[in-house]
């Protein structure tokens, strides 16, 4: 009986949290639509968010993209000839980088950097009553604090994904030059012949969805802090954990839609 009661209570709490989360998402979307229609004091927050999430992550994203592009090329040039499929190298490169790893790894980088930063920053603001202070002067925290972060993360996610794609292909090109020197025009020609607009669009769709997931989960977790400073790191950990899980679930769903 006790177990049933506990299970019931747990299910009720989880349902309640899910509904609250969906309400939060709805509120964020509603406020986002209003964001550009009115004179906003939140533009500075938006610019700062894009600088932090997008610009400051360029280096780490570039290093990762070049490395991954190079690794894929090394693996491909070693394995594919054994099956007589060397011509698939460019196709695999395009598919793996633009459709899958570009958005996925970029999302992981943004979650690790910005997701934790957003959750802990908002959590700290809750504990120090800064959120209430915004309310007291008539600023809606969703509009002023969440929406700029939401837009900033989504925009950064899209830009960084494109950036990742370009640098991933650059890494691959570097490896090609080492093992099988090829003129850049020929390399690009082969690459572009395999590249379809759909590859880029599906990748960007994933980037968009992942950006929404990271920003909404992180801000939600930040606001879930109640009173104690010890809740702040917990919010950061939850933001990362939940974002990772939801990103992978979203990735699977979009991939299924892509190949259905």
């Amino acid at each position: 009986m006790n177990i049933l009661v506990l299970l019931g209570r747990s299910a009720r709490e989880k349902s309640s949290r899910l509904l609250y989360g969906l309400g939060f998402l709805q509120n964020v979307i509603k406020e986002t639509l209003r964001f550009f229609r009115k004179s906003q004091v939140g533009y500075k927050v938006l610019i700062m968010q894009i600088l932090f999430t997008g610009y400051e992550a360029l280096t780490i994203n570039a290093i990762m993209a070049v490395s991954i592009g190079a690794a894929i090329n090394v693996i491909g040039t070693s394995l594919l000839p054994q099956f007589g499929q060397s011509q698939l190298m460019y196709t695999i490169l395009i598919i793996v980088i633009t459709r899958e790893l570009g958005p996925l790894l970029t999302a992981f980088v943004i979650t690790a950097r910005s997701g934790t930063a957003i959750a802990t920053q908002l959590g700290t603001m809750v504990v120090s009553h800064e959120i209430e202070a915004y309310l007291s002067v008539g600023l809606n925290p969703i509009s002023y604090l969440v929406v700029p972060r939401f837009i900033g993360v989504v925009v950064s996610m899209l830009v960084l994904t494109v950036y990742f794609n370009l640098f991933g292909l650059l890494g691959s090109f570097i490896v090609v030059q080492v093992f099988n020197p090829t003129p850049i025009s020929e390399y690009l020609g082969n690459l572009l012949s395999q590249l379809a607009v759909g590859d880029v669009l599906w990748g960007l769709l994933k980037a968009f969805v992942f950006g929404v997931v990271v920003s909404v989960v992180s801000t939600y977790q930040g606001f879930s802090v109640n009173k104690a400073s010890t809740e702040i790191p917990v919010a950061g950990i939850r933001a990362v954990g939940q974002s990772f899980i939801l990103i992978i679930v979203a990735d699977v769903i979009i991939t299924l839609m892509q190949y259905a």
């Binding site: 004091v41 002067v137 008539g138």
Partner: peptide
């Protein structure tokens, strides 16, 4: 206007911006 017990100033900006916020909003 509301005065908080523990001041509740916005830590990420300076005093001018803290005090100016109600004017910028309203």
């Amino acid at each position: 206007g509301f005065v908080f017990q523990d001041a509740a100033l916005w830590a990420d900006t300076n005093i001018l911006n803290n005090v100016a916020m109600p004017l910028r909003v309203h």
